[in-house]
Design a protein around this nucleic acid. Structure first.
Length: 117
DNA sequence: ATCGTGACCTGGA
DNA sequence: CTCCAGGCCACGA
């Protein structure tokens, strides 16, 4: 039954944990999937409250520019390192191609494996 | 009930 | 191209 027993915050964590490796999603996208396309701010706030031992791949969540918004000590380097380990490449601007690694959403990830590229 | 804050987004100059 | 401002939503005290 009701899977969403929690608030927007839990929903965000769930959606983020649904992001497949090698792909990234924007705060706005997560917020939209969570039910509020304008609550991108809150999404960041939720991830900021995540513990260091969280099972949520917060690293796959970036801003609209395709770059990392994490300024927290170590988090920035850590996030980029984790994303690069997933296969994501960053350009000289320190941003990745959302058109290439941008997550399409849980609905599409449910059963659509396109030829990519 | 109110106030303040935030890992954002968008548009305009 | 860069810089500035506003809005918008959710949550804690």
């Amino acid at each position: 039954m009701s899977v969403e027993t929690s608030s927007f915050r839990e929903r965000v964590l769930v959606l983020v944990s649904q992001i497949p490796a090698g792909q990234v999603a924007t705060y706005g996208q997560i917020a939209a999937l969570a039910g509020s396309p304008r609550a991108a701010r809150q999404v960041g706030g939720v991830l900021s409250a995540l513990p260091p031992d969280t099972a949520v791949p917060w690293q796959r969540v970036i801003n609209r520019q395709g770059s990392l918004s994490t300024w927290r000590k170590g988090c920035g380097e850590l996030q980029q390192a984790l994303l690069e380990a997933e296969g994501i490449v960053f350009n000289a601007s320190g941003a990745c191609d959302l058109s290439r690694y941008g997550w399409a959403g849980p609905a599409l990830a449910a059963g659509s494996q396109r030829g990519a590229q």
